[in-house]
Design a protein around this nucleic acid. Structure first.
Lengths: 215, 215, 215, 215
DNA sequence: CATGAATGAGACTTCATTCAT
DNA sequence: AATGAATGAAGTCTCATTCAT
């Protein structure tokens, strides 16, 4: 049962929903196909469970780890870095699965995924909102537009990784470098115009004063 | 033959590769299923042709229209705007198709798509390169990372449009406003930081590192 | 296609809906199973078509042949005789099929069968109504009760025939004798109380008068 | 074990043999599926036992209650009334089950059911025989034909009740009124015709034959 | 005795594809 | 060139039944 979920995750991640077969899942487990259906009412239900579990893990990791009391910049950097790591470590296929099946009008995956996606992006939205409230982020762009600016680039990078990484994974991504670059660029774009300059000047002045008074 | 490609594009765009059927393509055309196979070796070949044609159109439109002699900021804005328009007008389904089928290891879609994707992103890469060369864009980030920063957010927005637009298309995207916001944010993030800013950032980073290593 | 219906009729008649398999239908025809599904969308649709065709034949035969201008007794006798013949000649299995699947709450056979059953019993209902209107049949019992009095015994006899007749058909029913007995008993029970007596007396008197006047 | 039979009766009655599942029986009981197989060799054996038990109850009720010392008409009326009541109160589904599975050639239901059906109709046959012996029933029709005249209409009415009663049971049958009407009609048809009537019928028939042969 | 776990056998169905006409 | 007819291969799913514990 836990094994079925594990192997199901593997197969759905590798093949996508349509090309994954219950036959293959059963074979990899070394059990009969009927066994799979003893625990899950059908292929769809199994897949939904796989996706839900995976989302739950990610959501839990992000909600637990996000350093909410640090400056917005640090939070953003942490979010980008963690996001990339979580998805790359074991999840590019699942990422593709979710992205591919999230649409799919004929199937009602959407209804199942929607709440998960909301829960999953909630920490990011709150992060951005806090940043705007504290004046660290510009407020002339709506959150609705800021979200794709953060998630979009990461998804794109993950897609590239998935597309290439199948067979021989020619150049595994340097997660730290990539995350650093993304959050750097985002930070510059996201901050309140001239705010960084002001902040840095204040910072420099403070440090200088501290140095002076320390003798 | 041209009709088959037209209808094939429709169906593949609506359903994705796996859920599209040759039966439906033939029915929409009012011809027999066998006719489709008279002109195309099989479903895969037809799909490849559909994707290729579509890419060709987009590539042609972008290569022809990109205002290469304008400032980088104008080129970037044009690119974002055109990209969104091209994909939203008739192509979200095809976009999804390409994105979904780009991987799929067992299938040779990847080999076919790779050169097209390269040709398609080439104008953007050149645009960014020119911007860096002229000093309009920051040079501290590699092009490889800048590309997803531009394409990623747009894809994310398109996915959202596709995911929601299925049922009743509640709020069609305001292409101009969205494109404007994206390119504005990108512009801020991409432009070369001025000298004082760079110096201050370096200073801050140094202090932070020193603090960290001091425990 | 006509062959599929013919063999489908055979198999459904022999096995009933649940125990009939598309595999067997295909095998008896010497075609692949897929061929069956080329012409009918599914097992259910095929079965519905089989039943509908069969009903149509029976309804046509009864509507065309019923001697509406004869006395009610003759019509009743004809109806019983024809009914028994039609069902016994080739239809006991189908009769069983319809009777068995007419209920079956989970399936929507009912909706399909209801109009057919109405059309099929309509001639009988009209026959009985005419008989009541002309005073030949008693009017103290509602039509709703008279119908089962006619159809019920015949169905029961057919069931017996089906139950026994499977393997060796020990005693094939003598249709004429059986029909005669049924309609005789029904006639006695159905006619207006004392009406037969009155009618026969009138008849006898008329004949006598005619004889007398003829010298 | 007694519980299994009780629930088995429910499920087989509701679903029929093929559509009933051992899974459902076990679930309704709150026991494991294997438990059912601890007590019964298989689905078929359980079903046979269910039917046998039910028949035994009915047979016992009819054999015990039939007022053999009353006039034939009273016995007939009691039989019809009791039959309708027994079947309608809890048994339409089982009635349908027996009727449906009585045939089914490949299965050995028939062999099991045949003796039960005989025992079950025996009281009716004796009733009719006594009526004929005492001169209360006409003797010109064989018993073999009289039986369906009694049982047939009731079965038909029960089928109608089952077919309609599925959804909302629009008009529950008025057992007393229905039974009264049936036995009244049967009585009229079954009783010995009086002498004048018989003579007149013979006369009429002779005249008609003469007319027919004269062209 | 009761059962959790597993499964063999087989059902219906889909669909890309072939081929004679 | 167009197609009507047919199908092989594969997929999802159901269910009565077994057996070690």
């Amino acid at each position: 049962m836990r094994d079925i979920l594990r192997v199901g995750r593997e197969v759905f991640a590798e093949k996508g929903y349509e090309r994954a077969t219950t036959t293959e899942i059963a074979q990899r487990l070394g059990v009969s196909e009927a066994t799979v259906f003893t625990y899950f009412h059908g292929k769809r239900e199994l897949c939904v469970q796989v996706i839900t579990d995976w989302y739950d893990e990610i959501i839990a990791a992000i909600e637990a780890g996000l350093p909410r009391d640090q400056p917005a910049r640090v939070q953003l950097d942490w979010f980008v870095r963690t996001h990339l790591r979580l998805f790359l470590i074991q999840g590019t296929g699942l990422c593709a699965l979710v992205l591919s099946e999230g649409r799919s009008k004929g199937q009602d995956f959407g209804e199942t995924l929607l709440p998960l996606q909301r829960r999953y992006t909630a920490p990011l939205m709150e992060l951005l909102a806090r940043g705007q409230a504290s004046g660290e982020f510009r407020t002339d762009l709506p959150l609705r537009l800021l979200r794709p600016m953060v998630l979009g680039p990461m998804e794109h990078i993950l897609w590239e990784a998935v597309a290439q990484g199948g067979e021989a994974a020619p150049k595994p991504i340097d997660i730290d470098a990539t995350a650093g670059a993304i959050s750097a660029l985002l930070w510059t774009g996201l901050q309140a115009p001239d705010a960084e300059l002001a902040a840095l000047r204040t910072f420099q002045a403070t440090v200088r004063r501290a140095l002076d008074s320390a003798g």
